[in-house]
């Protein structure tokens, strides 16, 4: 629909809605600059009376920010790379190769997406902590100090494969002409080379979408990280570290501190998202319904 006149009513509605969407973020940012005493006062105000940076100073002192950042970053980067690798490999196989059991495996991968996350917290917690030959465990998963959760592997490995990622890659690779692949085969290219040098570069746009999606999701993931933190406090990620800070101390005193922590944890990702949104939003809109 190409509107001829300026649609003032549409602008008004969308602007008002945008304010409702963005306002909580502004509230978060501004209250992170409020002093504890101003915060404890009885009246609400959006803007702080005076901007103080104490909360950020305190956040750096009281939160092990370096560790939290390291864990969050290591986790998100590793999961993203692993998911890109496993999704593109499996997606390529399911889209372009012929072999017995293909339909069955594809149906299975579709079915994995129907299992809700909450079903896996209990068994996967046990499996991760008692993973054989990890973190000092013996072959039967006993005797060690936390299995996979003895290191950051506990935050990463259970997220290394994504059914959605495989599905997304398969759909995209199905659209690549078979002729390219056949020509490369006739030229004598090895299969791994066909995948790495021919197919993979063509999937760059959808890889970008999947990478942004996985990075953001693993950066924000909370429940599993909380469980891993309960096994090994060295595994706290940013959301976990900030939430734990909140539950330990007096809530009215720590609220501005928590807000400062949340600004540190969210604003970089939000800015990155806004910069990259073209790749993400377009990719999601093209792949959401197929």
């Amino acid at each position: 629909m190409k509107p001829q006149r300026t649609p003032w009513i549409s602008y008004a509605v969308i602007l008002l809605g945008s304010v409702l969407m963005v306002f909580p973020f502004l509230d978060m940012v501004f209250s992170s600059f409020k002093s504890a005493s101003e915060y404890a006062s009885l009246r609400y105000s959006l803007l702080p009376q005076t901007f103080v940076f104490d909360n950020y100073k305190l956040a750096f002192e009281q939160l092990k920010l370096a560790m939290l950042f390291k864990n969050s970053l290591l986790r998100s980067v590793s999961i993203t790379l692993l998911v890109l690798l496993t999704s593109s490999l499996a997606g390529y196989v399911l889209a372009k190769l012929k072999f017995p059991g293909k339909q069955l495996i594809f149906r299975f991968i579709l079915a994995t997406m129907m299992f809700p996350a909450f079903l896996f917290f209990i068994p996967n917690y046990y499996i991760t902590v008692h993973f054989p030959l990890a973190g000092g465990n013996d072959l039967f998963g006993a005797g060690g100090s936390g299995g996979l959760a003895a290191s950051q592997l506990g935050l990463i490995v259970p997220f290394a494969v994504s059914g959605f990622g495989i599905f997304l890659m398969r759909q995209f690779i199905m659209g690549i002409e078979d002729a390219y692949i056949e020509a490369a085969r006739i030229d004598g290219a090895r299969e791994l080379r066909i995948f790495a040098q021919l197919v993979l570069p063509m999937t760059a746009p959808v890889l970008a979408t999947l990478a942004i999606f996985e990075f953001i999701n693993s950066w924000n993931e909370f429940i599993w990280a909380l469980l891993m933190n309960s096994v090994n406090t060295d595994l706290a990620t940013l959301p976990v570290g900030i939430q734990m800070l909140k539950s330990h101390l007096d809530p009215t005193l720590t609220q501005p501190l928590v807000m400062a922590g949340l600004v540190i944890a969210t604003v970089p990702v939000l800015l990155a998202f806004i910069l990259l949104q073209k790749h993400y939003v377009r990719g999601m809109m093209n792949s959401g319904l197929k």
Partner: peptide, 20 residues
């Protein structure tokens, strides 16, 4: 993008801001 911002924010932030 503006309407999508909450979807790319950690629930810890969403929950705490709404609590406030």
């Amino acid at each position: 993008t503006l309407y999508f911002l909450p979807s790319v924010t950690t629930i810890v932030a969403i929950g705490n801001v709404w609590l406030y």
